[in-house]
Every structure is written in structure tokens, then in C-alpha cells.
């Protein structure tokens, strides 16, 4: 092999790997990302049943129903709309009525939501960032809830 051929081989292999990587990333970005929405967004953004989305908002007080089959029903609300959610699984430690939550799953044909994951990674004083932002945008956010005491 001449020097030139060696160099071409190197560039060829590197180019192939790079192209494959770019192709994979572009393909994955087009199909494998999930949108974050609040109940109000669903009508506005025209999201149909079957699409994988993240739904975030507040857990409506008094809406949580624990039945015996380990499936839990609750409602997620923002200031505008409320959506009924079904989740077959164990709720995370920090799931509470009146607090922020993010769920991932699909809308059903009758306007409900079936969650396959319920995320509650925030701590007591900290809302999920997406939920906090969307509530702020709707003017329904009291920052005093989230603040720790500051040094004098």
C-alpha cells in the first residue's frame, strides 16, 4: 500500500463512521424524542392518541384513587384543564396530591392518559423544572413555596 492509499483508507473509514453517526443521530432525533406538554397544551398543540408524550402538571387534590389491582388513577391539572391519568405501577416516593408531577405515556381515544412512567425526581422544595416553568407561564406559581431560608 502506498502512503496515499493508506491515507485514503483512513479518511474513508473515519468518514464512514462519522456518516453513520450523523445518520443515526438525525434519524433518532426525528422519531425518538418526546414532547413535554401540560393538559392545556394537548388541545392547543393538537396531539392525538397513541403519540408518546410527557404530561406534566399538578396532581389534583382528592383525585387519587388506589384500587386493588395496583393500578392508580389520578388527575393532572393546570389552571386551564384537567386530564384523567391511569398508571399501573408503584408511585414514586415523592408523589403527592397538590404537588407537581411528570408522567410519560400516551393519550387514549376517550381523552384520558395512560402513563407508563411517573417521574418525581424533585425533592420537597423543588418542582419539576418543566412544570414550574409552565405554571409560571400561566401565572400560577408562588416562588415562596420553593425557597429555602436565605442567610441574613
Amino acid at each position: 500500500m502506498t502512503r496515499k492509499q493508506r491515507r485514503l483508507t483512513l479518511i474513508g473509514v473515519a468518514g464512514t463512521v462519522l456518516l453513520a453517526a450523523v445518520g443515526l443521530v438525525l434519524f433518532a432525533l426525528s422519531g425518538k424524542i418526546t414532547l413535554f406538554v401540560t393538559p392545556a397544551d394537548i388541545a392547543a398543540k393538537n396531539i392525538g392518541p397513541g403519540q408518546q408524550i410527557r404530561l406534566g402538571g399538578l396532581v389534583k387534590v382528592g383525585s387519587v384513587v388506589k384500587s386493588d389491582g395496583a393500578a392508580v388513577r389520578f388527575e393532572i391539572e393546570d389552571t386551564v384543564k384537567t386530564i384523567k391519568v391511569t398508571y399501573a405501577g408503584v408511585l414514586p416516593d415523592l408523589f403527592r396530591e397538590g404537588q407537581g408531577v411528570v408522567t410519560e405515556g400516551k393519550l387514549t381515544a376517550d381523552g384520558g392518559f395512560v402513563a407508563d412512567t411517573v417521574l418525581a425526581k424533585h425533592d420537597e422544595t423543588y418542582m419539576p423544572k418543566e412544570v414550574a416553568d409552565s405554571l409560571k407561564a400561566q401565572g400560577h406559581w408562588n416562588p415562596a413555596d420553593a425557597n429555602k431560608p436565605k442567610p441574613q
Binding site: 443515526l24 406538554v37 410519560e104 418543566e130
Partner: peptide, 26 residues
């Protein structure tokens, strides 16, 4: 997701399906 939020204000999440499809084959 940070880029999308900064430019369009939309919120998305990139999770396991994305990484399985890209990181895995590489």
C-alpha cells in the same frame, strides 16, 4: 433539549429510545 428550549421555547425530552438507537449501534 436545552438547545430546543433556548431557541423555540418548546420542551422535549430525549430519553432511552434515542440513546439505544444511536449509542448502541456505535
Amino acid at each position: 433539549p436545552l438547545l430546543v428550549e433556548a431557541t423555540t421555547g418548546g420542551k422535549i425530552s430525549v430519553g432511552e429510545p434515542f440513546f439505544n438507537l444511536t449509542f448502541g449501534p456505535l
